[in-house]
């Protein structure tokens, strides 16, 4: 690994000032992606800024009225170990428990998963489905970016020079709502999704009031399939409606063929995973208050 300087600022203001002085700095949370990329020469920097000592990036609190504030550096084990997350956002607790293995989950954060912007990132389709919004700080203040607009290309995101992801805000789940992320991997654990589907639904009197569907590993970025969710709105909750939405998701996928699977196989997975994820989300919504 090439040499670098290291800084661990204790406040957001200090960090923003430091990043303004060092536009080439890279941010370190868990390090499970960054250190591997630095060692492989995929990324280079003269300064690594450890963001784990900034209070805003370590926040994890749930307010029934305002939703969940998930600090960008909060590691996965804290997310799935948090009682409020387990009860209010069980699908988020699940996804934090399938990113890597136990050792990864002790370090890696959902914020890091998002900033790393892998098309196959497990957490991002679910965040999109849940309508999550990124809070970004930078030299000209803070701004908000919807998660579906955050990733721009494999490994690239919308953060400009001197900007950092502070937190991810999840709006409170309405009554009768449910969510689920499903992925396909040939192993049981510790693998990269061949394809994945994150969904959320809101039900009302046996009808879909709204739904959001997003896919993993079938496009250059995590893919929000707005039209698949919109097709469900107003439809009665039937297997036919669910299958129709799954077919729209399949049609929206733009996968490549690589060592993990062919494009055709991935398109097929989009349909199956979307359907199954919707079925579980519907079940959860029915059981919800």
């Amino acid at each position: 690994m090439k040499w670098f300087d290291y800084a661990a600022p204790a406040s957001l203001d200090e960090t923003v000032k430091l990043l303004a002085q060092h536009p080439g700095a890279l941010l370190l949370a868990g390090g499970t992606d960054l250190l591997v990329q630095l060692r492989a020469g995929k990324k280079q920097t003269d300064l690594v800024v450890d963001v784990k000592h900034i209070p805003e990036l370590n926040a994890l609190h749930h307010d029934p009225a305002k939703g969940l504030t998930l600090g960008a550096a909060v590691p996965c084990y804290r997310i799935y170990g948090d009682g409020a997350v387990q009860s209010a956002f069980p699908a988020l607790a699940e996804v934090a428990g399938i990113i890597g293995g136990t050792q990864i989950q002790g370090r890696a954060s959902i914020g890091g998963n998002l900033c790393n912007a892998a098309p196959s990132a497990d957490s991002i389709p679910l965040l999109i489905a849940l309508g999550a919004v990124c809070r970004v700080a930078g030299p000209s203040g803070t701004r908000e970016v919807a998660v579906e607009d955050f990733c721009t290309a494999p490994g690239r995101n919308v953060l400009g020079p001197g900007e950092l992801l502070v937190s991810i805000q999840l709006p409170p789940g309405p009554a009768r709502s449910g969510a689920r992320y499903l992925r396909f991997i040939p192993r049981n654990e510790m693998d990269i999704a061949v394809a994945g589907a994150g969904v959320s639904v809101v039900l009302e009197d046996g009808v879909f009031r709204s739904a959001r569907i997003a896919l993993a590993a079938v496009a250059p970025t995590p893919l929000f399939v707005r039209e698949a969710g919109e097709a469900l709105a107003g439809q009665p909750v039937t297997p036919e409606a669910i299958s129709a939405a799954a077919e729209i998701a399949r049609g929206a996928a733009r996968p490549i063929t690589d060592m993990r699977g062919t494009a055709d196989y991935r398109r097929h997975l989009c349909s199956v995973l979307t359907r199954r994820a919707l079925e579980t989300a519907v079940q959860r919504a029915r059981e919800a208050r």
Binding site: L28, T32, G106
Partner: peptide
């Protein structure tokens, strides 16, 4: 592997298992 995949470098830090190959000593 030296890339957070195999687990041979596993140690326990603050009660949690981690890959010591992807933790900086300074951290």
């Amino acid at each position: 592997c030296d890339r957070a995949t195999c687990g041979a470098c596993t140690v326990i830090v603050s009660g949690k298992v981690v890959y010591s190959c992807t933790v900086l000593a300074i951290d």
